[in-house]
C-alpha cells in the first residue's frame, strides 16, 4: 500500500459536506479538535496519542495548501518526535463531486516520503519468502526422514 484513498457518498449537497470539512466545531464531531481555519497557508494542529515506536509525539502539523470552496481542500499532514523535524511527511486531500441526489466525497492521503522504496522492498521480501519456503520444505523432509515424532 502506497497511498490511502477512500470515497464516500452523502445524501446532502456539497455545501453541507463542505461545512463538516472546514468548520472546526463540526470537524471536532467526527475528526478531532483543531484550530483549523479555511484559509490557504493557515497552520493548524491535531493531537492524537503519541507512538514512540514510530517517533511520533502525538502532534500532527498541518498547513492548508489549497482551498476551493465546495470543491477541494488539501493540507499537509506532518509529524515527528517533537524536535521540529518531521519523520512523517504527507498530504491529505479532500475532493467533492456533486451528484444528482447528493455528494461524492473522496479522501486521498498521499505523498508519503519514501514510498518509492516500498515496491523494491516488497519484491525483495517476496524473493526471501520463496527461499524460506524452500528451506522449510527441505528441513521438514529431512526431519521426517530421521525422526518419528
Amino acid at each position: 500500500m502506497k497511498k490511502i484513498s477512500h470515497t464516500l457518498f452523502f445524501p446532502h449537497g456539497p455545501e453541507v459536506v463542505w461545512q463538516y470539512l472546514t468548520n472546526a466545531d463540526l470537524m471536532e464531531l467526527w475528526l478531532m479538535k483543531s484550530d483549523f481555519l479555511p484559509v490557504a497557508g493557515h497552520q493548524f494542529q491535531f493531537r492524537i496519542p503519541p507512538m514512540p515506536q514510530l517517533e511520533f509525539d502525538g502532534v500532527i502539523h498541518c498547513k492548508v495548501l489549497d482551498i476551493v470552496p465546495m470543491k477541494k481542500l488539501s493540507y499537509t499532514w506532518n509529524s515527528g518526535p517533537g524536535d521540529g523535524k518531521f519523520t512523517l511527511d504527507s498530504v491529505v486531500e479532500w475532493t467533492l463531486h456533486p451528484k444528482d441526489n447528493g455528494t461524492e466525497l473522496q479522501l486521498q492521503h498521499t505523498g508519503f516520503k519514501g514510498t518509492e522504496h516500498i515496491n523494491m522492498f516488497a519484491a525483495l521480501e517476496g524473493g526471501w519468502l520463496q527461499n524460506m519456503n524452500k528451506i522449510l520444505k527441505l528441513a521438514n523432509t529431512a526431519t521426517h526422514g530421521t525422526t518419528t515424532a
Binding site: 500500500m1 477512500h6 445524501p11 467526527w30 492524537i48 514510530l54 512523517l88 479522501l107 492521503h109 508519503f112
Partner: peptide, 22 residues
C-alpha cells in the same frame, strides 16, 4: 508501511463517524 496502515485505519474510523453524523 506501519504509518500508512495506521492512517488507513484511522481514516476509515473517522469517515464512518462522519457518515453516521451526516
Amino acid at each position: 508501511q506501519q504509518w500508512i496502515s495506521f492512517f488507513d485505519k484511522f481514516w476509515i474510523t473517522k469517515l464512518k463517524k462522519l457518515e453516521s453524523i451526516l
